[in-house]
């Protein structure tokens, strides 16, 4: 079995340890005997929608994100075609915003997005920042997905399915309790940085989505995740508010 992973704009969209996710996906596949080929595509590179099983897109500082966004807008139709064809995708923070319908800056200027999911983002004043935990239905109810968020934009879903419901933290906009967006096998989220490091269940779910395109339903062999699970549980409990929403 072989997984073809496409890392988009690795040199531009690389804030907060995002690249760790690519390493984690690669290792978790290789430990199960699945070969992994990582292709890095950036400005001006052609994207062949039929080739890759899994796309990864991180977040970046304003200027880098601006440079990437105009190029991503060009690649947008190919990326949509890939997802329609069953490819999986993980987009974090800035990457998540760029794949929405548009971004409205604080001066009212509107920048068009790729439109992969029905959602838009508005600039906010205060950054939404801190530890976050969400419940992702597809991953069962016993283990949350945990991470750290740090974003100025507020994303509002316009019919897109959220990735999950906020247990604590802010999520898409700090008001409606949703976090992230889904479209087919594509996932967007504000849980930034090495999100998959503390969420091996989410990493494996993404691998299964990615392999499905070429190999149908695949059951991944179990791995020793005792370290990851201990950290997931420890961090989840440590930041769980003693009062409030649960």
């Amino acid at each position: 079995m072989k997984l073809r992973l496409c890392h988009l704009y690795p040199e531009l969209l690389n804030l907060y340890g995002d690249r760790g996710n690519v390493l984690i996906l690669r290792r978790r596949a290789e430990w199960r005997g699945i070969a992994v080929e990582v292709t890095r595509l950036s400005l001006g590179d052609k994207l062949d929608p039929g080739v890759y099983d899994l796309y990864f897109l991180g977040g970046g500082p304003d200027q880098e994100q601006g440079v990437a966004s105009s190029d991503l807008f060009q690649k947008g139709p190919w990326l949509k075609e890939a997802v329609e064809g069953g490819a999986a995708l993980l987009a974090i923070c800035g990457g998540y915003q760029l794949l929405g319908e548009y971004y409205r800056a604080s001066n009212g200027e509107t920048l068009p997005g790729v439109g992969l999911w029905a959602a838009y983002t508005e600039a906010g004043i205060k950054r939404l920042k801190g530890n976050i935990a969400i419940q992702v239905e597809e991953l069962g109810l016993e283990r949350p997905v945990i991470g750290f968020e740090n974003h100025g934009g507020r994303t509002f879903l316009q019919g897109a399915r959220p990735l999950g419901q906020v247990i604590y933290g802010d999520g898409n906009n700090g008001t409606d309790g949703t976090e992230g967006a889904r479209y087919k096998s594509a996932i967007g989220t504000y849980l930034h940085g090495p999100l998959l490091s503390k969420n091996p269940h989410l990493a494996d779910y993404l691998l299964e989505l990615a392999l499905r395109r070429r190999y149908g339903e695949v059951e991944l062999a179990p791995l020793d995740d005792s370290l990851e699970i201990a950290v997931n549980e420890g961090v989840f409990r440590r930041f769980l508010p003693t009062k409030g929403k649960w």
Binding site: N131, F148, P194
Partner: peptide, 9 residues
């Protein structure tokens, strides 16, 4: 720094 994501960088 509250966020330890930087370890991966």
């Amino acid at each position: 720094g509250r966020d330890v994501s930087w370890l991966w960088d």
